[in-house]
Simulated scan of single mutants.
Amino acid sequence: MRKRVFTEGAEHTESTEQQSQNHAVIILASGLSQRLGQPKQLLIKNGEPLITYMTRLAITTNPQVIVIVVPDNHRFTASTMIELANQYPTVQIVVNSQADTGMAHSLSLGVEAIVALESTSIDRVLIMGVDQVLLDEPHLTALLAGKQTVVASRYHSWRRLETHQNRDKTVSDIIGLPLVIDYKLLRQWQSGLTGDKGLRHLIRGLPADQIGEVDNDQLSYDIDTPEQLAYAKQQGWLDS
């Protein structure tokens, strides 16, 4: 059976200070938001751009470095990131000039930036997106508390939620971002990160006992379409 780590009712003995000694963060924020029609990085939550909100969330885990991968065609995104980098010394900005090739290239660039640090103490990497608007600090803490090679998030898809969840058995649960992965393994896999071939198909090849999961259906609500954006605003998850 696959080992799981649950957010609800779990007690975590590792302190944030202990966690800060061994992980880096990659925030994948170079999506072009073509279906949404506007940069999702700049949607507003609690009075600030979503990318800023997610960066502050990542900072609460006290990582050694936060690498944010952004597209090169959104000057407003870049300016927001420069402000963050000036404010937080751990933040590094990486520009993806090939954002249309898929998420895998962004991840590869993020790994390159961490490798360039030549840090011998980083042993895990927390990988996040920007559009899971209900992501919170307890969930990231639960991911980092896991001991498996990969500790990933598990949640339903929008489609299952829209069809009253478990009634539609054809829609499988999603096991994906955010996730924590062994740094050495991520470096080994870097050459295989091309186009839309991200980590998911590589993770599936691991033995079940090397994969931990943190269940959190709040992560189902990412923002890809105008309809999803309208729903998030209606629920008060994003500013109107």
Rank of each mutant, 00 (worst) to 15 (best):
K147Y: 03
D182L: 01
R167Y: 14
E48G: 00
A230W: 02
F76Y: 08
E8N: 08
V150H: 07
G192D: 14
V91W: 00
G31T: 10
H12C: 06
G236F: 09
E227L: 04
Q41E: 15
E8I: 08
S220F: 02
Q21K: 13
L57T: 07
H164D: 13
S33R: 12
H201M: 04
L42K: 08
D217R: 05
L84P: 09
R159I: 11
D173S: 14
V214G: 07
S153P: 10
R124S: 14
G198W: 14
T170Y: 12
L43K: 08
P178G: 03
M128V: 05
S30F: 08
K169I: 09
M1S: 11
V111F: 01
S79R: 13
L144Y: 03
L186F: 06
A58Q: 10
Q190V: 02
H74T: 13
Y231W: 13
Y221I: 03
R200K: 14
H156A: 11
F76D: 15
H105T: 07
L109T: 05
G198P: 05
R167N: 13
S157Y: 07
R200E: 15
W237I: 05
L32E: 13
R75K: 04
M81D: 06
E14C: 02
L219K: 08
Q188G: 02
T61H: 03
L143A: 04
N86Y: 02
L117I: 09
Y221G: 04
T194F: 07
R159C: 06
H164P: 00
V214C: 13
D72I: 00
I59S: 11
A58L: 09
T77R: 02
E83V: 07
Q34D: 10
I181D: 09
H105A: 05
I66W: 10
Q210K: 12
Q64P: 01
P63W: 13
Q41F: 07
N86K: 13
V171S: 04
G176H: 14
E112T: 11
E14M: 08
E8V: 10
G236I: 07
G9A: 09
M103R: 12
L107F: 03
S108A: 12
N22F: 11
N22P: 00
K184I: 04
M1R: 04
V25Y: 05
R159Q: 15
P138H: 05
I127P: 10
A152N: 10
H105P: 00
T61Y: 01
G102D: 12
G236P: 10
T60E: 14
V94C: 00
V171N: 03
V25N: 07
G176R: 14
R2C: 06
D168W: 02
S30Y: 01
V130S: 02
I203R: 11
Q148A: 14
Q188I: 00
V130M: 07
L186E: 11
L28K: 12
M81C: 15
R160K: 12
V214F: 09
S15E: 08
I122S: 13
Q64L: 14
I223F: 05
T194K: 13
V69L: 04
N86D: 15
L206M: 11
P226N: 03
L84Q: 15
